[in-house]
Computed example of a mutant assay.
Amino acid sequence: MSTTTIFHNPNCGTSRNVLAMIREHGIEPEVVQYLKTPPTRETLQGLATAMGTTVRGLLRQKGTPYDELGLDDPKWTDAQLLDFMQEHPILLQRPIVVTSMGTRICRPKEVVNEILPPL
């Protein structure tokens, strides 16, 4: 199987649970702790494209500076939103999992089963 990658926040219970579910499938994923190593603009754009969503679809509101930055305003372009995510990686939805079967924001955690082989 191709490489499996999880964009992971170890402080997030859902992210920890999804990582455990991946490992229960016998897969040791590449773990990207995106708060320590933020994804590049190209990676973020690629994730949005792979999921069939917009850059805005990658944004997390809860527990982030989303409201303080006024990111609900539709005036922000994708390029500007990518800049915000680079500056504040906590804005990235979590966990995001990439496998050969697809790319998903795995919230709720059971979503990861859509892109993992059956047990």
Rank of each mutant, 00 (worst) to 15 (best):
P29G: 04
P39W: 01
Y34Q: 03
Q45E: 15
I27N: 00
I27G: 03
L47R: 03
T40Y: 02
V32R: 13
T49V: 13
V55R: 04
Q45L: 08
A50F: 12
T53E: 12
G52E: 15
A48N: 05
P29S: 07
P39N: 11
I27L: 10
T37S: 08
E30M: 06
E28A: 15
L44E: 04
V55Y: 13
T49K: 15
T37E: 10
T40W: 03
G26A: 14
T49M: 06
I27M: 06
P29A: 12
A50Y: 05
K36V: 02
T54W: 03
L44P: 05
K36Y: 01
M51E: 14
G52W: 12
T37C: 07
P39L: 04
P29M: 04
Q45K: 15
A50S: 14
E28V: 06
T40L: 09
L35Q: 08
G46I: 02
P38G: 10
I27D: 05
A48M: 03
Q45F: 11
M51Q: 13
T54M: 06
T54Q: 08
V55G: 04
Y34P: 00
A48L: 02
G26I: 05
M51L: 14
Q33D: 15
T40D: 09
T53H: 01
T37Q: 10
T54C: 00
A48P: 04
L35K: 09
Q45I: 03
P29K: 14
T49S: 15
V31K: 02
P39F: 15
E30L: 01
T54L: 11
T43A: 14
R41F: 11
P39H: 02
A48Q: 04
G46T: 11
L47F: 05
V55C: 04
L44S: 05
